[in-house]
Design a protein around this nucleic acid. Structure first.
Length: 927
RNA sequence: GGGUGAUUAGCUCAGUUGGUAGAGCGCUGCCCUUACAAGGCAGAUGUCAGGAGUUCAAGUCUCUUAUCACCCA
């Protein structure tokens, strides 16, 4: 083995081996355990969020696989309608073509070609992370089986009246010409203006008067579609105007003044213009007052022919300018103020999204939401952390119908056909439709041109991937799945919809029993990572390392806004002056696990991961020591006469506790605590103490073979258990080392990933060994402290006297003498009898027992006095607090007996220690 | 405006059913001790955001104020 740990030497090799051997496939025996991967976009690449999420899932999967469960991690990707279409359109543009030049069928073919060639890069990146899903079952939301599921579901929901066609406001992308879901719309604060317009009141004859109401708007162009003005019904300034009319400038339309709570008297003038066709809130207000819905845009947000001729055909932003100018000319522009406002932009096109009236397909959600709420209320689905269920409830109880149609070409084409009169027929294909509705061949049908929202197929993912609608064995085995691991940001878009569809189509069975919500991965400053901020860290760069130049290049190319380039470069230079060193997959994964506490966002900082890289190195070097001590040596594998020392029994006992703890933390999704327990045990108990304790036994000539066998055997078996305990979190390094270790234990299996996960064996708990080791550790540390504080050379072997001892102390010393002498670097101790007086010495306490290091020539008297005073001060402060409580009758009367007894014991111990140290101080001072 | 979460060592965070605060990193001193300097040994550091209450006892429970973050409107 190399002296230092080099992750890049081992990772790829093992992954290929595991995958080629089919180790990721379910075993076919044991309790079923299943996780569905949240399907990443087929166009996507791996980011920190994926890496975090997949680390959690893979750790759970590997843990359950090792536990012997029939474990399936179902992988796959989704077809990501809009982004995928855009990727291919961009390629076409580069060739000087558009998708319309190709036509729909050819275009879709071209997208498939792209998907086969370059889609799914992310699945390769997942492999780099060590993820172990069953790739042989990989699915894609557009493959045949899943597409059939989508069609089935659509038809059934339509036939039951749960899917309908309706005209509503949607988020309209005026460049891509399609509806978008809320999650595809990014709301960001931008600088804009607030324009105040004077709207003239109309007289009885409908003519404009000199009286005005002042309305404020951030979007002047929409005034052409105004069909009302709202004031608050209780607003005394305007109450008398309700029911009267406004003569809308430029248009000349008479529009009513209505009283509605939506108008906020505190905001602006308290009057608000209502444009039902172009604002979600206004639409609601309009519906309440029967206001006309006047659409003034075409699909590209150019003015259509409902507006006065002067504006027809104008782009919305040009129209805005002209309208402001025109109103100003009429003296109707009151003021213009600078104003910050939230602007919705399409996450793909970057253009401002319009609320726009279009014909779309909708799913009627209310009937599906009831059972979905019940499933969580009843506890059939649990959220981890629990409080996310409130977010779920609040959304589900006030849920809007779901717009499922998209005006693009790539996706599941809606299986609906229209005849010339506009009547709708839904079925699998045209032939099926004709059959189902008994339509003659003379009736012309044309299929709806829209496709379904990608989330529609994602909502079926938990059962469509398992073969539904066929009652496959997989479906019967793994549905309902065990846990969904996901971010809270898609709780509505995906989680809720999977629950609704799962319950609907799987006979009321939930799609998963638990939902584990993880937080967001942020940068070291707590900022969200984003391309435009230039603070993105690619997980693969953390694994493989990246030079500063490459990192700068990566962060500053293809920026939307040029002026951010310098500040990004500057920040990058400051944070990563030497780029990022290669930390390896295992260190990255362990970091994610260690940071994953109760759904909180995590700050990713390199110092933390460096610490865990060091942990890998520690494990690596621990392995080297174990190998050196056991390779080509007899470890007494088949020898039942192995003699176990107290230290051996101690580390075995500690291992049981650690195994139990780690298992408990895995069950409760506390990966941070599991990681911490493993780190603590591996480094601070096994490496810091046990390895050192083994040395005096293994290096000595006068130790029996059976004792050496016992220690070697313990050294190897405990280490092998550590590897198995760590494997779900750190798959590569544990496999690499395990391959070296396994021959020592005559293990012939091929891989650690299919070994059993360590289970705590209570029969190996050893309270005696643990208390004995605590005593020995106190002894050793007591001496080390004096050595360090008194500036005695670490190598100097000290003579030691023991005073105020009991027979039990002697027995404890005897049970661990060799180790104590070696680790404390002392000569065999001399037990002082009560009539012997000790020479001037420095003192350490183990309980009541005094460890004396004679001062002669070694120790500075004044230094020891100072040290003693410090100790005394420390104990005294603590003792005062404890005594304060004991002297309080309220405490002794009311607190439970065991608590009082415990405090009393504390007081006694501290008092005794204090007495001893004070006596010692008097003695030394007298010298 | 409504809701949720956060506020603990210089930094990043743990802290179980209330019993008097911990880790990693950083910092200080000593040490190249034959697994490891990506290391070893030892050490320092806290008005647990502020206030009030319940209790013998509050980082932990209740109320309140402040600041920050996110979700919804």
């Amino acid at each position: 083995m190399d002296k230092t740990y080099n992750p890049q030497d081992i990772e790829q090799r093992w992954y290929k081996h595991w995958e080629s051997q089919g180790y990721f496939q379910p075993s076919g025996t044991g309790d079923p355990y299943c996780i569905m991967i949240p399907p990443p976009n087929v166009t996507g690449t791996l980011h920190m969020g994926h890496a975090f999420q997949d680390t959690i899932m893979d750790s759970l999967i590997r843990y359950h696989r090792m536990k012997g469960d029939n474990t399936l991690w179902q992988p796959g990707t989704d077809h990501a309608g809009i982004s995928t279409q855009m990727v291919v359109e961009r390629q076409l543009n580069a060739e000087g073509k558009t998708r319309h030049d190709l036509g729909r069928d050819k275009f879709v073919e071209r997208v498939w070609d792209w998907k086969e060639e370059s889609g799914g890069e992310i699945t390769q990146q997942l492999r780099r992370l060590g993820a172990s899903p069953d790739w042989s079952r990989e699915r894609f939301t557009m493959d045949d089986g899943l597409s059939d599921s989508v069609g089935n579901v659509f038809e059934q929901l339509f036939d039951e009246g749960l899917i309908y066609r309706g005209k509503r406001l949607v988020n309209w992308d005026t460049v891509l010409h399609t509806a978008l879901s809320d999650i595809e719309v990014l709301n960001e604060e931008e600088n804009g203006h607030m324009w105040h317009f004077r709207y003239p009141l109309a007289d009885e004859q409908g003519n404009a008067t000199d009286e005005h109401l002042i309305v404020a708007t951030t979007r002047p162009e929409t005034m052409l579609g105004d069909s009302g003005v709202a004031v608050h019904p209780d607003d005394e300034r305007y109450q008398h105007l309700i029911g009267k009319f406004i003569k809308l400038p430029l248009v000349g339309r008479l529009i009513p003044i209505v009283g509605d709570d939506y108008a906020d008297p505190e905001k602006g003038t308290g009057c608000v213009k209502i444009t039902p066709a172009h604002d979600f809130n206004d639409y609601e207000v309009g519906a309440r007052h029967n206001l006309e819905v006047i659409n003034i845009f075409d699909d590209s947000a150019k003015m259509n022919d409902t507006v006065p001729e002067a504006y027809i055909g104008m782009d919305r932003f040009d129209a805005r300018k002209k309208i402001v100018t025109d109103l100003d000319a009429l003296g109707l522009l009151d003021v213009v103020k600078d104003h910050k406002l939230m602007v919705p932009r399409g996450d793909r096109s970057g253009t401002v999204i319009e609320p726009y009236m279009t014909d779309q397909w909708y799913v009627k959600v209310a009937p599906l939401a009831g059972p979905a709420i019940e499933a969580v209320e009843s506890g059939r689905i649990k959220f981890v952390p629990d409080n996310y269920k409130n977010m779920y409830f609040s959304w589900m109880t006030d849920v809007q119908d779901w717009c499922i149609s998209r005006q693009i070409w790539w996706g599941h084409r809606i299986p609906a056909w229209f005849d010339d009169s506009g009547k709708v027929y839904v079925g699998k294909d045209e032939a099926a439709v004709r059959e189902k509705y008994s339509l003659g061949s003379e009736l012309a049908l044309r299929q709806d041109t829209d496709v379904l929202d990608t989330w529609f197929s994602s909502a079926l993912w938990p059962f469509s991937t398992l073969g539904w609608p066929n009652k496959t064995e997989a479906l019967q085995t793994w549905y309902p799945t065990n846990v969904l691991v996901t971010g809270f940001d898609i709780i509505f878009f995906w989680v809720a919809r999977m629950i609704m569809f799962g319950l609907k189509f799987m006979d009321g069975e939930v799609p998963f029993k638990e939902v584990y919500m993880h937080g967001l991965v942020r940068d070291a400053e707590g900022q969200k990572m984003s391309k435009s901020k230039g603070n993105v860290i690619d997980p693969l760069d953390v694994i493989e390392g990246i030079t500063l130049d490459d990192l700068l290049e990566k962060r500053t190319k293809n920026l939307m806004q040029d002026h951010t380039r310098d500040s990004i470069a500057k920040a990058t230079l400051k944070q990563f002056p030497d780029g990022i060193p290669a930390f390896g997959t295992d260190a990255l994964r362990f970091s994610f696990a260690a940071l994953a506490s109760t759904g909180r966002d995590i700050r990713f900082d390199l110092q933390r991961i460096e610490g865990y890289r060091n942990f890998c190195n520690k494990l690596w070097n621990g392995a080297r020591y174990v190998m050196m001590q056991t390779e080509d040596k007899d470890i007494g594998l088949d020898n039942p006469n192995r003699e176990l020392s107290q230290a051996d029994r101690w580390i075995v006992s500690r291992l049981q506790k650690t195994s139990a703890e780690v298992a408990e933390h895995f069950e409760k999704y506390r990966f941070d605590l599991a990681a911490k327990a493993l780190y603590e045990f591996t480094w601070h108990e096994y490496c810091d103490w046990y390895l050192e304790l083994s040395k005096p036994v293994l290096f000595a000539d006068d130790v029996s073979d059976s004792a050496k066998h016992g220690t070697r055997y313990t050294l190897v078996t405990v280490f092998e258990s550590i590897l198995r305990l760590l494997h779900p979190i750190m798959p590569y390094i544990t496999e690499e080392i395990w391959q070296d270790i396994k021959p020592l234990l005559a293990i012939t299996d091929d891989t650690i990933m299919l070994q059993s996960y360590p289970v705590a064996d209570n029969s190996l708990d050893d309270a005696e060994a643990e208390s004995g080791m605590t005593w020995a550790q106190d002894f050793i540390v007591g001496i080390r402290k004096i050595r360090s504080e008194m500036d005695i050379k670490p190598g100097k072997v000290l003579p030691i006297l023991i005073a105020n001892w009991t027979e039990q102390d002697q027995a404890l010393y005897a049970s661990c003498t060799r180790e104590i002498l070696s680790l404390a670097k002392i000569e065999p101790v001399k037990w002082l009898t009560s009539d012997e007086t000790a020479p001037e010495s420095a003192t350490a306490l183990v309980g009541d027992m005094q460890i004396l290091i004679p001062l002669a020539g070694l120790i500075d008297k004044d230094a020891e006095i100072k040290r003693l005073n410090r100790e005394i001060e420390k104990i005294n402060t603590s003792l005062q607090g404890v005594l304060g409580r004991l002297n309080n009758p309220a405490f002794t009367d009311k607190a439970p007996e065991n608590v009082v007894a415990q405090v009393q014991k504390q007081a006694d111990e501290q008092q005794a220690a204090l007495d001893q140290l004070q006596q010692q101080l008097v003695k030394i001072e007298a010298m």
